[in-house]
Write a protein that binds this DNA or RNA. Sequence first.
DNA 1: TATACGATCACCT
DNA 2: GGTGATCGTATAC
Length: 199
Amino acid sequence: MPPSQPLPRDFYQRPTLDVARELLGKIIVRQTNGETLIGKIVETEAYIGQDDPACHAAKGRTPRTELMFGEPGYAYIYFIYGMYYCLNAVTEQPEFPAAVLIRAVEPLEGLQTMRSNRNRRTMADLTNGPGKLCQAMMIGKHQNGIDLCQSGELYIAAAPAVPTADILATRRIGIRVGTEKAWRFCLSGNRFVSHPRHR
DNA sequence: TATACGATCACCT
DNA sequence: GGTGATCGTATAC
C-alpha cells in the first residue's frame, strides 16, 4: 500500500525554485516486480529555462529535451556519461522548459533490493547521488515521460513540509556553466545528501 | 559518417 | 588529489 497520494500537477506548475525547495521531504515511490521501493527526497537542483546555461533546454528544443517543454509533473530522465540515468520532475507551465533534478534520497523501504541493485554493502552510498538513486530504484529510459502525478510504477507522493530552517541552498554540482546560482537545495545534516563536504 | 562531450561514479594514489 | 568507463546526443563535415 502506497504511503500517500501523488502530488498534484499544480504542485509542479509553479516557479521551479519553489518546487525544488518543497520537493525536499517528499516521497519517491517506485513499484516494480511486485515490490515497492521508497525514498525520501533530501537533495534537489533547479534547472530553469533557456537562459540558464546549465539547463539542457538552453541549446534549444530537441527530441531529448522535448519533455521539458511540455506539461509539468512528468518525469524527464536522461542518460549521462554512457552509464547512468538521472531523474527530473518537469516544472512550470507548458512551453517554459524547466525541471528539478532529484540528486539524492533517503532510502525508506526496499533496502535489500536497492542494495542488490547497487551491488554495495553499505547503506551510506546507496542513493546519495542522482545516478546512484536511479540505479538503486531501477529508474531508466523506460520510465522517461511517466506522469509523476498518477499512482503507478513511478510517482512522487505528498509528505509534510520540512521546516525552512532545515533547508540549505548551495551552488549546483557537476556543471561547468551557471555555477554562480545557488539552485541546489538539501536537508541540512541529512546523511544521505551527496557531496560529503557539505555539512 | 565522424567526433567531442556530458546535470556521474568507483576506484586509484 | 586524479582518471577511466561507456554511449546517446548534438554538431560538424
